[in-house]
Design a protein around this nucleic acid. Sequence first.
DNA 1: ATGCATATGACGGTTGATGACATATGTAGG
DNA 2: CCTACATATGTCATCAACCGTCATATGCAT
Lengths: 109, 109
Amino acid sequence: MQEPTFLILAALAARPLHGYGIIQAVDGLSEGQVKLRSGTLYGALDRLDQQGLIAVDREEPVDGRLRRYYRLSDAGAAALAGEAERLRRRAATADRQLSMRPGLAGGAA
Amino acid sequence: MQEPTFLILAALAARPLHGYGIIQAVDGLSEGQVKLRSGTLYGALDRLDQQGLIAVDREEPVDGRLRRYYRLSDAGAAALAGEAERLRRRAATADRQLSMRPGLAGGAA
DNA sequence: ATGCATATGACGGTTGATGACATATGTAGG
DNA sequence: CCTACATATGTCATCAACCGTCATATGCAT
């Protein structure tokens, strides 16, 4: 799972959001590091919906246009939690390996 | 940076390795979760070399064939450390968001 | 002799992210 | 009034990275 996908799920975990709301939430969650493009977003939304990780929560007509809210499904929450755990393991692994790096003073070896 | 790339850098952090050694190291580091394909590996090796994150350490002729060892560069170590930190933040963000999930007993809200 | 681990590498296909574009309303400023 | 920007949804072509498969070759064990 890539970062944009991961952050979309994370954004939807707290509450249902519509497309533009997700873009803003991801911007906030990533401290401005990840600017989600609409191309990335709507493609990911379709994909995640098909995979059952998210679902349409409700549709509200605003200014004569349909605003679609998505929410995280139970499967999506599980996937997100699993991925978070995975990331933590990877980070720990990298640190462990870096501490064994040759030519480093203060190595644990 | 994707997971295979990340794990290649992590594998090389501890010591220089040749291609097949990296495949085995990644398998071990990921506790068998990530089986690196040779197609992924050699493509990533070329790319990371071009980016200056890894470098050829030495070349040893074994059985009439060249075995090429790569090592992590300083830039690669910095990139790996930065990415690890990034992963940790993402994991924490996801957990925080999940704890705010509606319909959950025991939410911190 | 058959098969498996070791070992390097190329090639085509798929997936997911990116960048650019199209479209439309509300709002603020000149 | 006109311009520009935030809000808002969506499509399309392209690209980067990964995946699966194939090709090739040696050493070792059965």
